[in-house]
């Protein structure tokens, strides 16, 4: 591995100041499960790294005006044990459970996953369907960006070099809602997604679909929503026929590639299977009115 300088700020303001002075030569380092790999394979040469682990402001999970707010440095392992996540972020927890391996999960962070912006980032589909926003901070101030706008392409986001991702927030899921996350990999553990999908549906009092969100990973240059499929579900009873159709429409939305993990064709077909499976399960989960 090449040599680099490491800065270790103790507080968020200190970190933002360092970044303000030195960006773009200074790269934030969270768990390092992307950064270290890129360094080893010479994909990136980092002049300076800034360790984020000591910034208390990036840690912790809390409720705040009807939202759940998650520090960007929360590790994937923490998602599996945090009680608030269990209650208000079940999908994220499901994604964490099949994310990499236990060793990687202990280091990898949600913020790192989003800023790395792999099309296969496993925390993205759940956050997309939960209508999450990310909060970015720099010396100039704070701004919020909706998840669906944040990632713009392979390893590209709207984050400016002098900004840090501080937190991720989403509205607490409604009572008559349910959802799920599922991924297909080349094996069950320690793998990146060949395809991933998350869905979230809400029923109205009559048991009809009030809202539906579907997000897909590893099938385009970034994790995407399947808006066309979502639209046809709204106002409908969640029956097999319409679910099948939503699966097909999702598969038509995607623009996957052929690579070592799978062919474009296989990915498209798996999108259909995953969406169908997740929607049926979610539809059954929402208990009808007494």
């Amino acid at each position: 591995m090449p040599e680099f300088d490491l800065l270790m700020p103790q507080t968020l303001p200190e970190a933002l100041e360092m970044l303000g002075d030195r960006a773009p030569d200074l790269t934030p380092l969270a768990g390092g499960t992307n950064v270290i790999v890129y360094m080893r394979e010479d994909r990136h040469r980092y002049k300076m790294l800034m360790d984020l682990t000591r910034l208390n402001e990036l840690h912790g999970v809390r409720r705040e005006d009807g939202h759940l707010v998650l520090g960007s440095a929360t590790t994937i392992a923490e998602l599996l044990t945090d009680p608030l996540i269990a209650e208000h972020g079940a999908l994220l927890r499901q994604a964490a459970a099949v994310f990499a391996s236990p060793l990687v999960r202990n280091r990898a962070t949600v913020g790192g996953n989003l800023v790395d912006a792999s099309p296969a980032a496993d925390t993205a589909p759940p956050l997309l369907v939960m209508n999450a926003e990310v909060e970015l901070a720099s010396q100039k101030g704070v701004r919020r960006v909706p998840m669906d706008e944040f990632m713009v392409g392979v390893n590209e986001t709207l984050r400016q070099p002098e900004e840090l991702l501080v937190s991720i927030r989403w509205p607490l899921p409604a009572t008559r809602s349910a959802g799920g996350f599922s991924k297909i990999g080349l094996r069950k553990g320690a793998v990146c997604s060949v395809v991933s999908a998350a869905v979230m549906v809400e029923k109205d009092e009559d048991g009809l679909c009030q809202s539906a969100r579907i997000a897909l990973g590893a099938v385009a240059t970034r994790p995407i929503r399947a808006y066309a499929a979502e639209e046809i579900l709204v106002g409908q009873p969640l029956k097999p026929q319409i679910i099948d159709l939503a699966g097909q429409l999702s598969a038509e939305t995607v623009k996957p590639i052929d690579d070592i993990r799978g062919s474009a064709d296989y990915r498209r077909r798996m999108v259909e299977v995953l969406v169908r499976r997740l929607l049926s399960r979610a539809a059954q989960e929402i208990v009808p009115r007494e």
């Binding site: 990499a100 080349l186 094996r187 069950k188 553990g189 320690a190 793998v191 990146c192 070592i260 993990r261």
Partner: peptide, 11 residues
């Protein structure tokens, strides 16, 4: 390993 396609304990 991530892409080495060697099965793991899950398989």
């Amino acid at each position: 390993w991530v892409d080495a396609k060697t099965p793991a304990i899950g398989e």
